[in-house]
């Protein structure tokens, strides 16, 4: 049987016995799949050649020290060595492999942008504009208290001091301001939701 038709196991045995040509056949047979596997993880031809070379140096060492048990799984074994070297490479460089989006996996399922969208911002602006227009329709005393409380963030004590009315009056004006706002919203059928 020609050497290039022999199973991997026989070629491995021949190589371990000293036939250097057997390694050449093994490389020729599997180089495309091994190199393709490495390239799929690294996307860099020069780096791929380095990892491919390091993979086979490990293969050679393992075979010559007879620490490989032939179970008909030569290719998966070599691929595993290559995989471990790729992991080592990324660990050394402290970066993870680039992830591509597929039909079943989307990076945006894990990463969310919580900032509001342009549409959300426009709705918020519209709601605020509507609310300002409604507040303008309130009686002056109620409007004054509501603006001081909600927009200027003053306490009712501060409002009472600035407007010269008691705290209870300021509270009452605020209550009526809110009631009137609700009535205006219903009357104008305005939707104030964001």
């Amino acid at each position: 049987m020609a050497n290039n038709q022999l199973p991997d196991g026989i070629l491995v045995q021949q190589y371990v016995s000293g036939n250097e040509q057997a390694l050449s056949h093994l490389i020729e047979r599997h180089q495309s799949r091994i190199y393709g596997f490495i390239y799929s993880k690294l996307n860099d031809r020069d780096l791929c050649d380095d990892i491919f070379q390091d993979t086979f140096i490990k293969v050679i060492k393992n075979l010559k020290t007879k620490s490989y048990n032939e179970e008909g799984k030569f290719l998966p074994w070599v691929i595993r060595i290559a995989h471990n070297l790729i992991v080592d490479h990324y660990r050394k460089n402290k970066k993870m492999p680039m992830t591509r989006e597929t039909e079943t996996y989307s990076i945006f399922e894990f990463i969310k942008d919580n900032s509001s969208t342009i549409e959300g911002q426009m709705i918020t602006e519209q709601v605020e504009e509507d609310l300002k227009r409604l507040i303008e329709e309130l009686p002056n005393d109620q409007k004054e208290v509501l603006v001081m409380r909600m927009y200027e963030d003053l306490s009712f004590k501060e409002i009472s001091e600035q407007t010269g009315v008691s705290i209870n009056t300021a509270l009452g004006r605020m209550r009526y301001a809110l009631m009137n706002l609700r009535k205006l919203i219903e009357k104008n059928q305005i939707v104030l939701t964001n």
Partner: peptide, 10 residues
């Protein structure tokens, strides 16, 4: 790789 293999001995 092949040269290394030829040169490497245990």
């Amino acid at each position: 790789i092949l040269s290394y293999s030829a040169a490497f001995n245990v």
